[in-house]
Design a protein around this nucleic acid. Structure first.
Lengths: 188, 188
DNA sequence: TCACCTCCATACGGCACCGTATGGTGCTGT
DNA sequence: ACAGCACCATACGGTGCCGTATGGAGGTGA
């Protein structure tokens, strides 16, 4: 790979973001990572902020719309989709969670905006699924927030203290079952 | 305040940690914050790492044991305690959540260790409460992980996108009711 | 083949933070 | 009142990252 493209840089930035936080999206370390020098980076991007912005846009595309599209594409009734969704995103193989690195750095205005858009999008999608399952409008919204909170919290635990989460295949399945039946429990 | 004590520094560090992440726990900015110079900091602590360690220890004391003690002290049956616990920690006034700043930086070994201890402690306490409510051992543990995930996720949302959470007093109460009945729903 | 444009390496100045060295100030005991 | 110590300010060198300037290498069209 003699020459780098813009996407090469955002790809490397996403990796760095996942396991080093926003601070790790730094031109000079990234340059070393991709086997180039700053000269290349400052050719494709005017400054660090532009690289961060482009990386966040890429994350929004790849990690939100892609997942929703996948769940929708395979069809099935809403309950099946919900199970597939949670089965996918709660899976340890779901990879290093970029959102964790971001939600923490949400004091940064660029990050805050991107995170807000993604959160709204996901919760809205969950609320829609729950509405199709018979929950009233306000109730569906509450459960969507709750379900999304479960996802976020679980993601944090997966990274920080994986030991507290169920380990074996059977245990994970029992856990997923419990999560779903809990989230779908009838209201008061 | 002419002279500073060790606790003055960890207090300032906790504040900085809450709204700037671990990176904000930096000697020189903190010195400006407390109205002193680096000289003072490096007298009380051999280096930055020692300050970070002391700050994390203080956080473990103040933000874990204190909350559990408060919940236990006021008595009541397990269900009441659980409600009081969630009512407290899900309250927006619960303050800037240090854990969010930490869970993100959990690649740092010091932080990872502290966070793991706190997570285990809290989940263990939740599992105990749930056990007293009649859940079988494994089931109680699953629900404890789930409940703690809800807390973590909710805390993230509160910071990142407060708009998605219920706003009014009544709405917040309805949300809390729903969270509790959901978490306590009978298993399959 | 030669001019040109794209992409990049190298070298530089600047800033923020770390950690050290050293001297100074005010309290404390005697 | 003076010695000694606890506490702190000041000044310095070192490091990692940002952003700029500039020249050079390799492909492309006439």
């Amino acid at each position: 790979m003699r020459r780098r493209t813009r996407d090469d840089w955002t790809a490397a930035a996403l990796e760095a973001l996942a396991d080093g936080g926003l601070a790790a999206v730094a031109i000079e370390p990234l340059a070393a990572r991709v086997g180039a020098t700053k000269g290349s980076a400052y050719w494709h991007f005017p400054n660090r902020e532009a690289l961060v912005t482009a990386t966040l846009e890429r994350w929004e595309r790849d990690h939100t719309e892609a997942v929703i599209d996948m769940v929708e594409a395979e069809g099935g009734d809403p309950a099946t989709r919900l199970r597939r969704l949670f089965g996918a995103v709660l899976d340890p193989a779901h990879g290093p969670h970029v959102e964790l690195a971001l939600l923490s750095t949400s004091d940064d205005p660029l990050v805050a905006a991107a995170v807000s858009r993604v959160n709204e999008r996901r919760i809205g999608y969950l609320a829609r699924l729950l509405g199709q399952l018979g929950f009233a409008r306000a109730q569906a919204r509450r459960r969507a927030v709750l379900a999304y909170s479960v996802y976020l919290g679980q993601a944090q635990l997966m990274r920080a203290t994986p030991g507290v989460l169920p380990q074996g295949k059977a245990a994970r399945r029992a856990h997923l079952d419990d999560v779903l039946t809990t989230m779908l429990a009838a209201p008061v």
